[in-house]
Simulated assay, not measured.
Amino acid sequence: MPATTVQPAVALESIASPQLWAVTIAGLVVLLVLDFIVTRRPHEVRMREAVGWSVFYLALPLVFGVGLWAWAGSTVAVEFFTGYVVEKSLSVDNLFVFMLLLAAFAVPAVLAQRVLLYGIIGALVLRAIFIALGAAALQSGTWAFLLFGAILIVTAVKVFRDAASGQEHEVDVSSLRSVRLVRRFMPVTDGYRGSRLMVREAGRYALTPLALAMVAVFATDIVFAVDSVPAVYGVTEDPFLVFATNAFALLGLRALYFVLQGALSKLRYLNHGLSLILAFIGVKLVLHWAHGIWPQVPEIPTPLSLGVIVTVLVTVTLTSVHANHRDQRAEARPGDR
């Protein structure tokens, strides 16, 4: 009788030693503490400040990637840069939802960056949990690649359908289960109380709308983690690189929000592009799973993945700019309706 074929477990070899993990996490903590210091005094973020921090947080992954190239070689560095581009592009879409949540809760401009900072910390914690779960799933067998691929393809179809139908991001605060649950157990003040999350009024403790906004942002972080972690596992199987790409992509979101809050609405084809990227990585994962069973099935190399992702993002930007200019010219024509 022929021997039964058993799917082998995936050996996840990481380039990171315990010392490198410790240094990376320590560096992340230092950056978060620095962000806390910056946001300790609530103030409205000016464009100059936001651009300066954005440049800083864009330079960090470049320096880190160059260091990886010198230390571990070009293959590891290309995987890092590819994963970073994927996570950064997905995080830009996250900013849309953050923007809508801040508007829905009428968060004052001086408190917006504090809400974003707590949201980013929550996202980092959730990503770390999902990364660990993803690594455990991959070690249990190659079926995890098929599962991750299916998740991404299904998500891509949903995102594309929403984009094709013209459906915009919508946030109904009253329908968020997390917000309803909090309101059921705690009273909420009728207005903001500065940067305080909880106050004592009329002899009882009550949450402020700022606390509810942070709960809502944290709840949406869970949804984002479900998509982003499988996406980067489609680029690299190294848990350290997966964590590093997520951390670098999230760290600069607070500053990037204030830089792009006016431009985000003009990227009308962003979701079309993100759906293509998610579908592409999903197919890449399925092919990787199939290659482990049938070696003749081709795999998509990481440099090609990086090229496809960058091409899609550039195309999305150019077509969005062209469409915006076309609409502006049409509106400027006299008598044109």
Rank of each mutant, 00 (worst) to 15 (best):
A144N: 04
A123W: 12
I153N: 08
A128V: 09
G141H: 06
L133V: 08
L117C: 08
G134P: 09
W143P: 04
A136G: 07
G122F: 08
L124Y: 07
L147S: 02
V159Q: 01
S140G: 15
I129L: 12
L126K: 13
V159D: 00
I121C: 15
G149K: 05
I121D: 03
A137F: 13
A144M: 04
T142N: 12
R161I: 05
L152Y: 11
L133N: 01
G141Q: 04
I131F: 07
K158C: 05
A123C: 14
V159M: 11
A144G: 02
G134A: 13
L133I: 07
A137Y: 06
A156L: 09
A135D: 00
L138T: 12
L138A: 12
L117P: 06
L138I: 14
L117A: 13
F148S: 11
G119W: 07
L146N: 06
I121W: 06
L124A: 14
V154K: 15
V159N: 01
T155I: 13
I129Y: 02
G134M: 13
A128N: 06
F148T: 09
L117M: 14
A144T: 04
G134F: 11
V154C: 15
K158D: 00
L124C: 12
A128D: 01
L117Q: 10
A137E: 04
L146M: 14
G134Q: 03
F130E: 00
V154S: 15
L126M: 15
A128K: 11
V125Y: 06
A123Y: 09
L133S: 02
D162P: 01
G122D: 05
A163I: 02
G122Q: 09
L124K: 12
A163Y: 00
F148M: 10
A128Y: 01
L126P: 08
I120R: 05
G134N: 09
L124V: 15
A123M: 15
F160T: 00
L126V: 15
W143R: 12
A132L: 10
A135K: 01
A137T: 08
A128L: 12
G134Y: 08
G141S: 06
A163K: 05
L126T: 11
W143G: 10
L124S: 11
I121N: 05
Y118I: 15
W143M: 13
G149P: 02
G149A: 06
F145C: 03
V157W: 06
S140V: 07
L124D: 05
G122C: 12
R161W: 02
V159F: 03
